[in-house]
Amino acid sequence: MASDAVEAVDEVKAVDDLVVVPLRHWGRWVVGAVILALLGALGWALADAKIDYAAVPGFFTHDIMLRGLVNTVVLALAAQAGAIVLGVLIALLRRSANPVARWFAAGYVWLFRGLPVLLQILLWFNLALVFENISIPGLFEEKTNVLVTAFVAALLGLGLNESAYMAEIVRAGLNSVDHGQVEAAKAIGMTPATTLRRVVLPQAMRVIIPPTGNNFINMLKGTSMASVIGFLELIHAANNIASRNLQIMETLLAAAAWYMVVVSVASVGQHFLERYYGKGVAR
């Protein structure tokens, strides 16, 4: 017995004394070095480029650039907000018991998702060519080119396209909620409207928010297409400034910086929304 114990202790000692050689990951060092070398080369090239970096901060806070920034954000928010409302509506029509409503919703998505946004913006902007006036008989009448400004045309083009995507996102969200939830709501006497508002939508939000955040980031960048019809958003603002001093790269870099700022803020907002609607979900 005693000798067994001594042997065991010796064995442990022997194991402790062994030299252990960890696996060397040579490949990782090589890949890391290559990436750093390439980044270094890029940085060196950019530092040596014919760019007047000192001018960028001035363009970043230039009056016109700031107006472009405000217009970009306002257009993106308005288009996204409209798209969410319309999208929920179309998604509800798509799930309706009424076959005409379902058919209409499917056609709506097919059309507004199918056409390029730029084309849609151009169609709205040139609406005056085919309809001189817009009127609701007896109530309202106005010249089309007064009513459909560059902002309105961009809003319609971006918003309607986005609403088709939102309809699909909302539909997926509504479908993700267990039918037992609706039955439980009915069983405590909830009306369909209250069931949707209190039980189904809050749970659907968990599925709806991530792709919506994604789409909103796309929307922020998509507003740049409104520059084509002369709307003063960031790109148009950059071009506007550059047309006076020919510092095209510098103004575009200032616009690029603003896009990154706005997109970053949107991403942070999405994170908090996701956390809020994740309530009650086991992780």
């Binding site: 039955e183 439980a184 009915k186 069983a187 909830m190 369909p192 809050p202 749970q203 979900v281």
Partner: peptide, 20 residues
Amino acid sequence: ARQRRGVGMVFQRFNLFPHR
């Protein structure tokens, strides 16, 4: 929905609202 108010129901799979 108004009629159902007077009738309580308990389900096999509970169907509690998970977000509350």
